[in-house]
Amino acid sequence: MIDLRLPIGIFFILVGVILMIFGLVSPTNIPNIDVHINIDLYWGIVLLLFGIPMTFFGLRAERKIKKKAST
């Protein structure tokens, strides 16, 4: 069975990239408050920082399973 970290990691990388690009292309502040924060950009980075290690560990586990199966 597929290592669950892989789809979760890829999902958050995708969504993180979507938010980051949107935050860069059309910077939007948080509405209705007087502090200027490009929340889409920053939260996209947070999602990416979560997604990358999840994908890495998922891929590593998948490789291990394949290696075990071949031996």
Binding site: V15, I18, L19, F22, G23, T28, N29, I30, P31, N32, I33, I39, D40, W43, G44
Partner: peptide
């Protein structure tokens, strides 16, 4: 509705 901008609102 009050505080999430487009993008974060989708999430």
């Amino acid at each position: 509705a009050k505080y999430y901008p487009a993008g974060l609102l989708g999430l």
